[in-house]
Every structure is written in structure tokens, then in C-alpha cells.
């Protein structure tokens, strides 16, 4: 119980550190700070008006005071103004985030299931043709740059064969149509899954092969279980904490992949927003997205740790003292 509490406190500490980092970055951003609030009108202010505006916004106060008021603003839901879209950031985000969630969420599930299945197949037929074939194909797919794969798929399926749409999340006016959305999701999902599945498949496979060399697998075999039964009932149980940790690592990894895929397919999600805001120097939007993604990752890491500790007796033991002393 105590260790769990310490873990949660540590997470809160990480979040605070992240927010400080983001705040420092926000202040290091080049350009006029007034621009992020007033847009282009800031150029036409004279010196006295500028001072007035800075005072009103509290930009003349010491940094730590600004940090806490910034934090307060964040919690109240006031995330600043987006330069490019000319909207408050908090109004802009939800729709785009939903699109990314759909793409990323489905990709995450698909990748998890496929990677596990491939790893199990490789472990069952270790060393034989199936295993070697899957490994080589997997490595090849891992090395394909995802944006290049996306462009190639667009070239083949959209431009030449005209089977699938070249981009976007849905055709105009059909945002609620599931079929339409699914058709638009096919290519981006294919790219995401192909470029990530073997990364996790290889990790799972090597860990699974290591587990299969343990003595309890031999005991299970001596008890009369078949290979499939051993893989599923014995090896997977001990691998559960590892799989949960992989899920925690996978989240930022796959999310990073969605940014590129959204840029290639013009899919209106958070990734597209990030690329546009980075190109257009829209720091409010950019940093808000960075803070949001960091928050989500840290919380999911905590969740993964709690879940894996529940499943694994081994993790409940305390680590030993440093060997420096």
C-alpha cells in the first residue's frame, strides 16, 4: 500500500516537473508574447499600450508567480489562443483529439493483438521456416519509413487503382457515417499497424523464447500439457507484467506514429494540429498539445505499473540497495 502511495506521489512529481518544463519552454519561445493573446493586432500597439497590456496580463510579474497563475489557468480550462486557427485552444482540441483517439485507439488494439499472435506463432515454431519467415517479413516492415509506406499506398490504392480515398477522416457531410469513416481509416491503419507491429512482436517473441527456457515449462511438459496449452496457460501468465509495461511504452510510440500518418493522409487529428502549429509557430497550441500528451502518458505509465504489480508477485518485492556503497 505504501509503495503504491509513493508511486502515485512520484507520478504527481513527474507531472509537476513536466508542467515546469512546458512553462519554461513557453517563455523561451521566440516572438512577441502579446501576439499569442492579441494576434496581429499586437503589432499596432504603441509603447504605453504595450506596458498596460503586459501589466494586465501579468507578464511583468516574477516568473514563479506567472507559473502559478498559468497553472491556475490550465486547470480552469483557459489554454490560450491559437494563432493559426484564431480560436481558443480549448475549443479547438476536442474534435481533433477525438479523431486521433479513434485512429490511435484502433491501431493500438490491432497492434497489440497481432504482435501477440505473431510472437506466439514464432515461439511455437521456433527455428523452423514459419518463424524465420515471420521474422524477416517483420523486420522488413519495421524498417519501412511509415510516411513513405503511406505515400506508396496512396499511390497504389488511391491514385492508380482508385479503390480507397487518398486522405481525410470522412467525406464532406458524412462525419457520422461509420462506413465512410472506416473506409477512410483503412489506409492510415494499415500504415500504422505495419510499421509498429514487428517492434512489439520481436520484443514479445524474444521474451517468450527466454521464458520457454525456464524449468517450469519443462515441468508443465512433464505434466502432460501440449505446446499450445503451455504457451497460453503458463508462459503468458508470467509475461503479463512485461506485456503491460510494453503497453505503457507503446502508447507514446504509436502516438508519435499517428502524427506522421495524419500528416501524410491529411487526417484531421492532433498530429496534424501539431505539425501545423510547429510550422506556423503557434506556441500556445503546440505546448498545450505537448502538455496534454505528457499527462496522458504519465498517467498510463502509472496505470500499467499498478496493473502489472497486481499480476506479478515478483514485482512486489523491494529493490535492493545500490551497489555503489
Amino acid at each position: 500500500m505504501l509503495t503504491a502511495l509513493i508511486r502515485v506521489l512520484g507520478t504527481v512529481f513527474s507531472l509537476c516537473l513536466l508542467s515546469v518544463l512546458i512553462f519554461v519552454l513557453a517563455h523561451a519561445a521566440p516572438g512577441d508574447p502579446l501576439q499569442s493573446f492579441f494576434g496581429n493586432a499586437a503589432d499596432s500597439l504603441d509603447a504605453a499600450q504595450r506596458l498596460q497590456a503586459l501589466d494586465a496580463l501579468g507578464l511583468n510579474r516574477p516568473l514563479y508567480q506567472q507559473y502559478f497563475s498559468w497553472l491556475q489557468q490550465i486547470f480552469q480550462g483557459n489554454w490560450g489562443m491559437s494563432l493559426i486557427y484564431r480560436m481558443p485552444v480549448q475549443h479547438l482540441l476536442p474534435l481533433y483529439l477525438l479523431n486521433t483517439l479513434i485512429l490511435g485507439g484502433i491501431a493500438f488494439l490491432l497492434i497489440a493483438v497481432l504482435a501477440l499472435i505473431l510472437a506466439l506463432i514464432c515461439a511455437r515454431f521456433e527455428g523452423r521456416l514459419t518463424d524465420r519467415l515471420i521474422c524477416s517479413l517483420g523486420s522488413a516492415s519495421y524498417f519501412l519509413p511509415s510516411f513513405w509506406l503511406g505515400v506508396i499506398l496512396i499511390l497504389i490504392f488511391a491514385v492508380n487503382l482508385r479503390l480507397l480515398p487518398p486522405g481525410g477522416a470522412y467525406d464532406p457531410g458524412q462525419s457520422a457515417s461509420l462506413l465512410n469513416r472506416s473506409i477512410h481509416l483503412l489506409l492510415p491503419l494499415a500504415v500504422l499497424v505495419l510499421s509498429h507491429v514487428w517492434y512489439y512482436g520481436a520484443l514479445l517473441r524474444s521474451r517468450l523464447l527466454e521464458e520457454l527456457r525456464a524449468d517450469y515449462i519443462l515441468t508443465a511438459k512433464a505434466c502432460g500439457l501440449s505446446s499450445v496449452q503451455i504457451l497460453i496457460s503458463q508462459a503468458l501468465r508470467t509475461m503479463l507484467p512485461f506485456m503491460l509495461q510494453l503497453c505503457a511504452i507503446a502508447l507514446p510510440h504509436i502516438l508519435g506514429g499517428t502524427f506522421v500518418v495524419e500528416a501524410v493522409f491529411n487526417y484531421p487529428g492532433a498530429g496534424l494540429l501539431i505539425v501545423q502549429s510547429a510550422k506556423g509557430h503557434d506556441y500556445n497550441l503546440l505546448l498545450a498539445l505537448v502538455l496534454l500528451s505528457g499527462f496522458v502518458m504519465i498517467c498510463s505509465a502509472l496505470l500499467a505499473h499498478i496493473l502489472s504489480a497486481y499480476f506479478d508477485f515478483r514485482l512486489r518485492a523491494r529493490p535492493e540497495a545500490s551497489w555503489l556503497h
Partner: peptide, 27 residues
């Protein structure tokens, strides 16, 4: 191996040296 599976555990039992490694540590 399929036929051997029927014999293992039901007619022939095996116990190994390292009992700590011979049982699944996660269950």
C-alpha cells in the same frame, strides 16, 4: 509427441532438482 502427452503426468510422473524454478512463479 501427442501420444507421449497422454502418458506423461497420468502414468509417469517427473520431479526435478530445482523446485524453485520448476513451479510457475507468477501463479
Amino acid at each position: 509427441s501427442k501420444q507421449l502427452r497422454l502418458v506423461r503426468g497420468s502414468l509417469i510422473g517427473t520431479v526435478f532438482q530445482d523446485s524453485a524454478a520448476s513451479l510457475n512463479p507468477a501463479v
